[in-house]
Nucleic acid binder design. Structure first.
Lengths: 196, 196
DNA sequence: TTGAGCGATCCAGTATTATATATCAAAGCC
DNA sequence: GGCTTTGATATATAATACTGGATCGCTCAA
């Protein structure tokens, strides 16, 4: 059953995953069952309009009707907002590294309790994960994550964390406001090894 | 059954009516039955996502997912395109007058055959119909329509028609490019449209 | 008056969605 | 190795979307 709603559903799934919400969590917020969501996302079932709306609303998305003519403009706007000019890439090599970093932050939250800095950090990582990065940028991130890992044990980590968060955020902002047409160099995949 | 999809459906209906497509015509293009569409539009039935997409696609609309944060910007964009800054109003007092005018033009097309001027005229009327107008503006339109009615019989109406069409279009353009924030005087009825 | 097109409504039957619940393998964490 | 979470899947049942008609009241034009 290949439908035209495919891409919409894919988009919903992407944002769900990008914001780290599980199907179960979403099912509660949206008032649907987990199995339902699973079937919708995997294309085994076509949702009703209202189910779909419930689902997307719970993800902070709005379903909108746009004249075909304006569709490109709108989707441009949307993309510019979420990933300021660079291509979304899923399942890329550095995913693993970011995944680890994200888990690390989560763990720190669990251990030391939530803090504004940790929250910022988590969000920034989530952002960077979806962005194409040059080797140089990736290198910087690697370092920062290493520092994070290094400080995780200490109870006096707070100032370090703040510093790391600020650094990452600076990077994020520079990416976000880069000249829109400038083709990013795109990292080369050198993953897999050197890691501490 | 008050659903959250209400406004989307209303929007679809509005564009259908604004572009003068009947439920039956739409049902053919969209591959649904007329009774189905009727029930959907009147809220007696909740469409499936794919039915809704079929329906809107046939109206040259795209269903899009937009981050809530951007929703205002997008709907601003959309409204600016269709009705440059003024509120859509449906079922307002001057509808009848416009309805007559529209039919009149249609009839003229039938009798004298289509012409570029008549086409422009029809489109302009359709536009003006959806716009809030001051008394003054309405007065002008009334006059022009009267002139149109007066000339409809003549086979030598062409130059008059062209003139009328130009006048209406001038009005339309002045409305379209009016300062966006300037609150239109708005004839009588103050019915804000804020979607629910 | 007659006829055509419009949208709303009804009806019977089928197909599909949606729920509730439970299980399962895979991956991550302890 | 155990414990937890995640997403996919199964089954049985209730709910409803959707089709295919047909009809009705209405408005408008011939």
């Amino acid at each position: 059953m290949a439908y035209q709603s495919e891409s919409l559903i894919a988009q919903a799934r992407e944002t769900r995953e990008a914001s780290g919400v599980s199907q179960r969590a979403l099912s509660e917020r949206a008032g649907l069952t987990q199995s339902h969501i699973s079937q919708i996302e995997s294309g085994k079932m076509e949702p009703g309009l209202s189910s779909f709306i419930d689902m997307t609303r719970a993800l902070d998305l709005e379903v909108m009707l746009v004249p075909k003519k304006l569709a490109p403009a709108v989707s441009g706007l949307v993309k510019a907002q979420s990933t300021p000019d660079m291509h979304i890439h899923t399942g890329q090599p550095n995913d693993k590294r970011f995944g680890r970093a994200e888990r690390l932050v989560k763990k720190m939250k669990r251990v030391y309790g939530s803090s504004a800095d940790l929250d910022r950090l988590e969000e920034t990582i989530r952002f960077l994960r979806r962005v194409r990065l040059s080797d140089q940028e990736m290198q910087l991130i690697r370092e920062l994550i290493a520092r994070l890992e290094h400080h995780k044990v200490s109870a006096q980590a707070a100032p370090f964390i703040r510093d790391i968060a600020q650094n990452l955020e600076r990077l994020r902002n520079s990416l976000a406001h880069a000249a829109p047409s400038e083709p990013r160099p795109a990292y080369s995949l050198d993953d897999e090894d050197a890691d501490a």
